[in-house]
Design a protein around this nucleic acid. Structure first.
Lengths: 229, 229
DNA sequence: GCAAAAGTGTTTCGGGTACACCCATGT
DNA sequence: ACATGGGTGTACCCGAAACACTTTTGC
């Protein structure tokens, strides 16, 4: 089967920067390329956009093929279209950023990848294509966006102690935060649900668990509320 | 001439939301479509991406064809790729936003447009395609970005009185701003150059002119400075 | 009882906001 | 002289930041 057009068309792909969080670092999911170009090098997962799927759907599909996870948070980042960004020819790529609960699954690599693994954002391997640049932009985006939108919760389990939320911000923003001020501000925003559950299996006093209440957040937004760290 | 590919490819276009400022409104440049679909309706200027030009270059080129202006401020906005957004088939469009000094030129329409004109953003005509949505996103973007990046200057003449700068913010943000506080804040940022020139041909005391000093701004950025209205 | 982390208020400081009058210029 | 807009300083208030001790739990 082949397709013919009057004018030449660039190929169109989506690439997806997947962020996860571990105890002490913000991580991204990379795949090791099984085929040329950049065979053996690490890269951001991605693939071609089908004719009958929207860009967001393509990103979600690729991500599911690479990771097995559905229903996650994704957001369009930027579209990269330098003429020479892919040695195989003109390829324009719509980059997405996704946030996942890293503990929920093991990376599984698709056929076009030799391997898939997490890397801390501050110690990345060399990347193929312009993926270094895409990743840098994604990192900037998450750093700034986490401060004024409640997207951090996408990286945590549904139920979490405040300490973990604070640690999340400390890791992403790369600065220490005062515990009392943090709790005060976070709880005052009134978008967290205080649960009657506590951490398990800790060798010290167990912390209370909280849950992000999206409904309450949406409601507060309408009242002119503004999420901010 | 025709081009054949193994897999089908969406067509790729750039669309450009051009903002200008007049005495009392923020405006966008629209063209009236000369051909179907949506013939006779107003739309955002745009066109196909050539194989040997980067996306930004395509946006700049289209813009120059539509308006005759080069060297203006452009910024990528978002990529729109719903399956049915164009009745002619699958067309993915990378949307840009541009800011121009509206007084500097008259709109001139290209061959594919019957007409081109400015419309105040708060009284737009009905638009073809998903251009209403693109425009709404551009409007959101300029509104939020103008508050933390010095892009407003792109809409003003090089030399301007502070009153005009304040009016710009009042128009874009749609709220009144206190004159003394505005001047204090703006001058304290130390990115404006106080000129020894004054307005001409006004029937009252002439205001001093200022100029945005980009070099000083870049330098202050490195010192950890943060532009904000 | 000791190690480890949870949980909790008050004071201080700086920046944002509110606010009104005199001055320069052209007609 | 008057109409029009240019230009200027101070007081208050609120939210951000700094800061240390007691409590709970497991070992």
């Amino acid at each position: 089967m082949s397709y013919t057009y009057e004018h030449p068309r660039p190929a169109l792909t989506v690439d997806c920067v997947v962020f996860g969080l571990s105890d002490c670092s913000l991580n991204v999911l990379l795949i090791q390329r099984a085929n040329p170009p950049f065979q053996g090098q690490w890269a951001i997962p991605g693939g071609f956009v089908d004719m009958d799927e929207a860009l967001d759907d393509a990103a979600r599909r690729e991500l599911q093929e690479e990771t097995g996870i559905k229903n996650l948070f994704i957001e369009q980042l930027y579209t990269f279209g330098s003429v020479d960004r892919d040695p195989r020819g003109r390829v324009v790529s719509v980059a997405y950023m996704a946030l996942v609960r890293q503990a929920d699954y093991r990376p599984q690599h698709a056929d076009d990848a030799a391997d898939a693994d997490w890397f801390a954002v501050d110690s990345l391997p060399e990347l193929g294509f312009d993926h270094q640049q895409i990743l840098a932009m994604a990192h900037d985006r998450i750093r700034s966006k986490v401060q004024y939108q409640p997207i951090g919760f996408e990286l945590l389990p549904r139920k979490f102690p405040l300490r973990d939320l604070q640690r999340l911000y400390e890791i992403i923003l790369d600065r220490e935060i005062d515990k009392r001020n943090f709790r005060k501000k976070m709880l005052n925003m009134d978008v967290l649900e205080e649960l009657d559950e506590f951490e398990q299996n800790v060798s010290h006093r167990a912390a209370r668990l909280y849950r992000f209440n999206r409904r309450k957040y949406q409601q507060r937004l309408k009242e002119g509320f503004h999420f901010e760290i």
